[in-house]
Simulated scan of single mutants.
Amino acid sequence: MTPTRTRVACGVAALATAGLLASACSGSGQQAAPGDPAPTAVTIEISDAGCGPNPATVPTGPVNFAVTNAASAKVTEAEVQGGGKILGEKENITAGLDSSFSLRMEPGTYSVYCPGAAKDTWTFTVSGTGGTAPTAAADTSLAAATQGYHDYVVSETAQLQKATKTFTDAVRAGNVAAAEKAFAPARVHYESIEPVAESFGDLDPAIDARIDDVDDPTRWTGFHRIEKALWADGNLDGMTAIADKLDADVATLEDKAATNTYQPAELANGASDLLTEVSTSKVTGEEDRYSHTDLWDFAANIDGARKAFELLQPALAAKDPDLAQQLEARFTDVTQGLAKYRSGDGYQDYGAVTDTDKRSLADSVNALAEPLSQVAGKVV
């Protein structure tokens, strides 16, 4: 499998490098609500040798995957894959760290994947007996949530296609000023659906990889490759082919979005992991390092995570109204915090944001990501 671009799940190294001290790691909190049956517990111990799940067979229903790393410096990631996509994952679980995520597993055969291990793929089986099902009311609410998010992704990818075409037309015309103006408005439609970017497979790195995430710079494509040409190189020489490929990849993504399906825990896990990435690595300015349009991305990431939360909110409120209320308040806090950086139809240059303000922004996003990490365990 071709790895998708790296996402920071836990760690403080990036913030320490930038002089930012926001907390970067929080517990996943994936427990069942009081009175609900507990999820089946599965341990994934990642090591240089592999990542065999224990137990390797479970009944259908909610499953809590506890990912641990005792000593491996080589293997730091575990994914549960099925149906050609990543259903759940934890990355950057370095030696001595652990984390978890929850999923509702249907009968079938799945894979546990840990890139870099001697044996990197292991079979995980879900039997068709046992387990627990949501109540009829919860099942209806969660079905509406996943259908609503599907519709949201379809809408955003349609807008992404149009906005990207405006951007790439300027690139092909060699119009640097027009391309720079169109860059951030196009990317917001991609960043807004990033909570489920792992479901896009190889399209995610093709469209959105940073230079750090590619082994061969000559094969680097997507938005950030053109970003470098615009702001770092100051010309668009050789970018026509990159623009053409970006259009083709976005068109393929639009087609894929029409048939993609999601499960409730996938929305919750994706939103939580994305906000953790914002509060740890993106806040340093590494995402849009040439254009400094990072605040556009942050706002779109928050919007996408909030959409997932709002769709899951009815089911969450029925199980844990206090958590639902807390999350609503913290989403409001983050949105209001970003609002002060508005400038015209967009946002200020991130290069002008002080380290103190970056630290404050990281703190507020991390304060949101921590309780958001509890949602998957409530809705499986």
Results as ranks from 00 to 15, higher is better:
residue 176 V to Y: 07
residue 306 R to E: 12
residue 318 A to W: 06
residue 114 C to R: 08
residue 242 I to M: 06
residue 46 I to K: 06
residue 34 P to F: 05
residue 164 T to N: 11
residue 122 W to S: 07
residue 227 E to G: 07
residue 216 D to I: 01
residue 283 V to I: 15
residue 318 A to V: 05
residue 188 V to L: 00
residue 340 K to Q: 13
residue 191 E to N: 08
residue 53 P to K: 07
residue 84 G to D: 01
residue 375 V to T: 09
residue 221 T to K: 06
residue 100 S to A: 10
residue 10 C to D: 09
residue 359 R to E: 06
residue 256 K to V: 09
residue 20 L to F: 05
residue 258 A to K: 08
residue 178 A to Q: 04
residue 268 A to D: 04
residue 67 V to R: 03
residue 372 L to F: 15
residue 323 L to R: 08
residue 21 L to H: 07
residue 146 T to F: 05
residue 141 S to V: 02
residue 251 A to W: 09
residue 107 P to R: 00
residue 15 L to Q: 00
residue 239 M to Y: 10
residue 364 S to T: 13
residue 61 G to K: 07
residue 9 A to Q: 10
residue 243 A to Y: 09
residue 204 D to S: 13
residue 126 V to Q: 13
residue 157 T to S: 02
residue 336 Q to E: 11
residue 376 A to I: 07
residue 100 S to V: 00
residue 226 I to R: 00
residue 212 D to C: 11
residue 371 P to N: 06
residue 160 L to A: 04
residue 252 T to Q: 14
residue 188 V to P: 00
residue 302 I to C: 03
residue 369 A to K: 11
residue 302 I to R: 01
residue 35 G to Y: 11
residue 187 R to D: 03
residue 99 S to C: 09
residue 293 T to H: 05
residue 352 A to P: 00
residue 145 A to G: 00
residue 164 T to I: 07
residue 9 A to W: 13
